[in-house]
Design a protein around this nucleic acid. Structure first.
Length: 378
RNA sequence: GGAGAGGUAGCGAAGUGGCUAAACGCGACUGACUGUAACUCAGUUCCUUAGGGUUCGGCAGUUCGAAUCUGCCCCUCUCCA
């Protein structure tokens, strides 16, 4: 399905851009951030809450839903939207990330990937065709090609073989796509930190032709300078008139650096995961809410935030909830962190429209406490 | 009053002559987390000027060496009266 992507504005001070695309579940303006709901739920939150904080698309995961409850069951339920009660956009990841994250229990062949189920140890086989078939059944608005997310660092020879495989898999997936009139399909650029391989991968994917292009294999432990270069090189070889989706990125710094380079879409587990682990992202920096210094701090988590959490509860209260292991703590901070990320991207969007993105970014870093001389930090 | 059990780091609890500044758990503290095998994981937790110093209820002994053995004392718990 053609998302009918429209490039609405290009910032004059950098490569950042404003765009818009349409799915059956609404019009989406970019840049935008998608919270992750791997197992058909953004952990701890209801779909109404997710919708209320401004999420327009959420992610779900093919591998995990394939295992439980199974694609047929979700199809029977009327598709993922109905099953999980979400009438906004849904994007399903292909299972490609599990090739990376479950590396210890899988084996790659040209045909596909053999997994040893993390649930019960049973033997599973995922191929590009199966991934697309499962995603067709799940029925998300945007689906992803089955790829191999490569660890960093990897050798040139390994990455080269892997990229060739990922391109073949993308082609096979596209050919297997049965619902191309309803579901957009994205290709994923890999190539690790090797410019020529990223270039090759991007060019080959564009030849095959997809409704959008993702940049994969970043934020897997590489230094920031390499991260930035991976994005630059990938984008250089992607068409301007299709959405660009940087997979798995969600720290404020990573997002802003990518927006500056022309990325339109993001997804990440970081806001929700660190929330559950007791860390909040705020306008004045990272807050590890369990820290003793917040014991008697009765002020809001983020003084500049008007989310449900910040307008109603104090740091001392949140700290207490974490200390006594109350689940409301995880819910409130998850809610805040997603809201914060949406707000960050919205502010970035305003800055692009006003041609002052770089200035906005630098001011944010200053307030957030980012040391720009360092090659890392989130 | 009688019989028995026991006192170990913030708490609980191992350890019954040297490998023990003392397992383990909890609590506390700090950090990590980027297409979620993640309410997870890692580290610190007697004092320290980092050389050492002072510990296992208290005191006094035995021994080359004691949380561990001996004596006395203090305290706690359980059962019976």
């Amino acid at each position: 399905m053609n998302l009918n992507f429209k490039l609405k504005y290009k910032s004059k001070d950098c490569n950042a851009r404003i765009g818009e695309f349409t799915t059956k579940h609404g019009i989406v303006e970019t840049p935008m951030f998608m919270p992750v709901g791997t197992q058909a739920t953004v952990k701890t939150l209801t779909t109404n809450e997710v919708k209320a904080i401004g999420s327009q698309i959420i992610l779900a995961n093919t591998y995990h839903l394939w295992l439980r409850p199974g694609a047929d069951l979700i199809q029977k339920a009327g598709g993922l939207h109905k099953f999980m009660n979400y009438d906004q956009g849904i994007l399903t990841d292909s299972g490609g990330f599990q090739v990376f994250s479950l590396a210890d229990i899988r084996k790659i062949t040209d045909e596909g990937v053999k997994f040893k189920s993390h649930v019960d140890g049973s033997k599973l086989f995922m191929s590009p065709e199966i991934s697309i078939e499962v995603q067709n059944k799940l029925g998300a608005d945007i689906i992803m090609s089955f790829d191999e997310c490569i660890p960093y660092p990897s050798s040139y020879d390994y990455v080269k073989d892997s990229v060739i495989r990922t391109i073949k898999w993308a082609k096979r997936g596209k050919e297997a796509h049965q619902r191309s009139d309803e579901q957009a399909l994205f290709g994923i650029v890999q190539g690790s930190n090797f410019d020529v391989l990223r270039e090759y991968c991007a060019n080959e994917l564009v030849k095959i032709g997809f409704d959008g292009y993702a940049i994969g294999g970043t934020s897997v432990g590489e230094p920031k300078s390499i991260y930035k270069n991976m994005i630059d090189i990938s984008i250089k070889h992607l068409p301007e008139d299709k959405p660009r989706y940087l997979m798995g990125v969600g720290s404020p710094v990573s997002i802003l650096e990518a927006i500056e380079r022309g990325v339109d879409m993001f997804d990440c587990v970081l806001p929700t995961r660190i929330a559950r682990h007791g860390t909040a992202m705020t306008s004045i920096g990272k807050v590890v809410i369990r820290n003793a210094k917040y014991k008697e701090d009765f002020t809001a988590l983020d003084p500049n935030c008007d989310c449900e959490c910040c307008t109603n509860y104090s740091k001392a209260y949140l700290r207490h909830l974490f200390n006594v292991n109350e689940q409301l703590a995880q819910r409130l901070v998850s809610l805040h962190n997603i809201y914060f990320t949406h707000q960050l991207v919205n502010k970035a969007k305003d800055a692009i429209k006003n041609d002052c993105f770089v200035k906005f970014k630098n001011e944010f870093y200053k307030q957030y406490g980012i040391d720009t001389t360092k090659d890392n930090g989130f």
